[in-house]
C-alpha cells in the first residue's frame, strides 16, 4: 500500500483538486466533444444554410456574397424543383407505408407468436441485415432487377418481365433498405405490451380483430411513429440508391448533388427542403409522444 502514501505527489493532488471541483470535472468532460459537435459540425451546417442566401455568378460560377432570397424563390417557383420535391416526399411516404405493412407481421411474430426461447435469435436475424453494407444491399437489387436477373427469371413464367430500373425500383430498394428500422421499434413496442391487457380484452368479449384495433394498435402507435421517423427521413435524403437502380428518376438528393460544384448556394437552398420537411415531421411525431420510445 505504499503507492497511496502522501508521497504519491502530483497525481494525487490533481485527483484531489478534481474531486473537490465537480464543475471543473464537468467542463473537462464536455469541452472536447462539444467543441467538435457545436463548433465544427453545427458551425459548418449553419454556414451552409447561410450560403443559401447568396448567389452564383452565372458566367464565372463564383459565389457572390450578396444577401437575397433568389435561390428559395427558384426552388419554390420552378416546376422542375417543385415536382422533384413532391416526388421525393411521395416516395418517402410510400416507403414508410410499405415498411409498416411489411414490418408489422414480422414484428408481431418475433415479439408475440414465436417461442420465447427463439426470440433473441430472431432479433439478431433482423439486426444483422440492418448493419450489412448499404451499398451492397442496393447493389443486390441492381443485380436482381438487371436484365436476365432474378426478377426476370421469377416473372418469366407469368409472361412478363421484371420491373427494371426506375421509380418502382427506387421505392422497392428504399423499402428494403429501411425495413429493419421499422421492425425493431414495433417489435420493442409489442414486446412491452402487457399480456393482461390482452386477456382483459378477451374476457370482456372482444374478438381478435377488436382487440387488435382497440388495444394493440393504440399502444403500438408510438413505436410505428418512431420507426417512421427513420424510414421517412432516410428515404427523403437518399440519392445513392436512386443512382444505382433509379434509371432516369431524380429525387431531391440528386438535385442537390448535381448542383454542388456549379451552384453551391442553389444546392444549399435545395438541401433545406428535406431538412425542413424532416424537422416538421419530427415535431409532428414529437407531439404524439413517440420520440420518447426511440
Amino acid at each position: 500500500m505504499t503507492d497511496t502514501a502522501p508521497a504519491a505527489g502530483l497525481g494525487r493532488r490533481l485527483a484531489g483538486t478534481l474531486h473537490r471541483r465537480p464543475r471543473l470535472r464537468l467542463s473537462l468532460l464536455l469541452s472536447a466533444p462539444l467543441f467538435w459537435l457545436i463548433v465544427a459540425y453545427l458551425g459548418s451546417l449553419a454556414a451552409l444554410f447561410l450560403s443559401a442566401f447568396w448567389t452564383t455568378d452565372a458566367f464565372t460560377s463564383n459565389v457572390v456574397k450578396s444577401w437575397n432570397l433568389d435561390n428559395f424563390v427558384t426552388v419554390l417557383s420552378e416546376s422542375v424543383y417543385r415536382d422533384v420535391a413532391l416526388r421525393s416526399v411521395g416516395v418517402a411516404v410510400a416507403v414508410t407505408l410499405i415498411d409498416i405493412c411489411l414490418a408489422f407481421p414480422i414484428a408481431f411474430y418475433t415479439a408475440r407468436v414465436a417461442r420465447p426461447r427463439h426470440r433473441p435469435l430472431l432479433v439478431v436475424a433482423v439486426l444483422t441485415p440492418l448493419w450489412a453494407s448499404y451499398l451492397v444491399k442496393a447493389y443486390a437489387w441492381r443485380l436482381i432487377l438487371s436484365e436476365g436477373g432474378l426478377a426476370d427469371w421469377v416473372f418469366g413464367p407469368f409472361g412478363t418481365e421484371g420491373p427494371g430500373y426506375g421509380l418502382a425500383a427506387v421505392i422497392t430498394v428504399l423499402s428494403y433498405l429501411w425495413l429493419p428500422y421499422m421492425i425493431l421499434p414495433i417489435h420493442a413496442g409489442l414486446e412491452q405490451l402487457p399480456g393482461n391487457l390482452l386477456d382483459a380484452s378477451a374476457d370482456l368479449g372482444a374478438r381478435t380483430w377488436r382487440t387488435f384495433t382497440s388495444v394493440v394498435m393504440p399502444m403500438v402507435f408510438p413505436s410505428i411513429a418512431a420507426g417512421s421517423v427513420f424510414t421517412f427521413s432516410l428515404s427523403l435524403g437518399d440519392y445513392i440508391a436512386v443512382q444505382i437502380v433509379g434509371g432516369k428518376t431524380q429525387l431531391i438528393g440528386n438535385l442537390v448533388y448535381s448542383n454542388i460544384t456549379l451552384d453551391l448556394p442553389l444546392a444549399a437552398a435545395l438541401g433545406t427542403v428535406p431538412v425542413a420537411v424532416i424537422v416538421l415531421y419530427l415535431l409532428a411525431v414529437r407531439r404524439s409522444g413517440a420520440l420518447n420510445s426511440l
Partner: peptide, 13 residues
C-alpha cells in the same frame, strides 16, 4: 440529417 447535407456542409467548411 440526410448524409448529403452533412457531407456538403463539412466539405465547404
Amino acid at each position: 440529417l440526410p448524409g448529403i447535407v452533412t457531407g456538403v456542409a463539412l466539405n465547404t467548411a
